[in-house]
């Protein structure tokens, strides 16, 4: 038997616990596969696949992080994190980054499926990866914030979906924004770029270039990091 891995940092601890929860690990990896496989390989139009996969990515990021943080608050782990000799922003940033990275690993399987389905549009894969990272980071921050408003993991779902669904609509995921104002708003939301990159890969009819979607993903990673710093005390110091 190999010796157990020893976590020295928060991200290592997250990875070890993720790996040790075998059943959760299998569910987490199978879940996007089961949704993405029929979407990408059926005769359904690519536009529906792009819509569903954008929603899936957003939900995975926000619900996962919100539910975990809410559960940790309920059982007293949030206080243990609070008492670590580190600034709250550093603690939450590492937790959110680890959560988003694990979510991204989940979504890699979707990328592989797209790559096999559309081998001529591989240029879109880095754009999808970075835009998905931006969405997952932003949604993990949303989940963290929602966890500070709620008392149980169940309540987190409501607190997350209330802002998430209008944001997805405003991003043009369901229907392209016609009015100039709505179009301008859509540019401020991370889902727009993931949706566009998926459209690029699955339909060949995107609004933007792969570079623009990839760059937006990087920008939203930075914005999420800044928001995490601002929210850290609220999230970590609420009982």
């Amino acid at each position: 038997m190999s010796p157990p891995a020893l976590p020295a940092s928060i991200w290592q601890r997250e990875l070890i616990e993720f790996e040790q929860r075998r059943r959760a690990l299998v569910v987490k990896l199978l879940f996007p596969l089961l949704i993405a496989l029929p979407l990408i390989y059926s005769r359904a139009a690519g536009v529906y696949a792009a819509m569903a996969l954008t929603m899936l990515t957003a939900t995975v990021g926000a619900l996962g992080s919100g539910a975990v943080l809410s559960r940790e608050r309920a059982i007293g782990l949030n206080v243990r994190y609070r008492l670590l000799p580190r600034r709250p922003a550093a603690v939450l940033l590492e937790r959110v980054a680890a959560g988003a990275a694990i979510d991204l690993v989940q979504m890699l399987v979707v990328l592989v499926l797209i790559a096999f389905r559309q081998p001529t549009r591989l240029a879109w894969l880095p754009a999808i990866l970075l835009a998905a990272a931006g969405v997952l980071a932003a949604c993990n921050v949303l989940g963290a914030w929602a966890s500070s408003l709620t008392r149980s993991p169940g309540e987190v779902m409501l607190a997350v979906l209330l802002p998430l669904l209008p944001a997805l609509y405003l991003s043009g995921v369901f229907t392209a924004p016609a009015a100039p104002l709505l179009a301008a708003i859509s540019r401020l939301l991370p889902f727009t770029y993931l949706h566009d990159a998926l459209l690029g890969a699955l339909t060949g009819r995107p609004q933007l270039t792969p570079w623009a979607d990839a760059a937006a993903g990087i920008v939203f990673l930075a914005v999420s990091a800044a928001l995490t710093g601002l929210l850290a005390r609220r999230v970590l110091e609420r009982d």
Partner: peptide
Amino acid sequence: LGVVLDQAAHFEEMTAYQNGWFFARQFG
């Protein structure tokens, strides 16, 4: 500071040794 609060909260999926290691390393 060394603080023990009323809830004995740990990372339940990890072993006692892993928990100890995590906190020892976090405290430098």
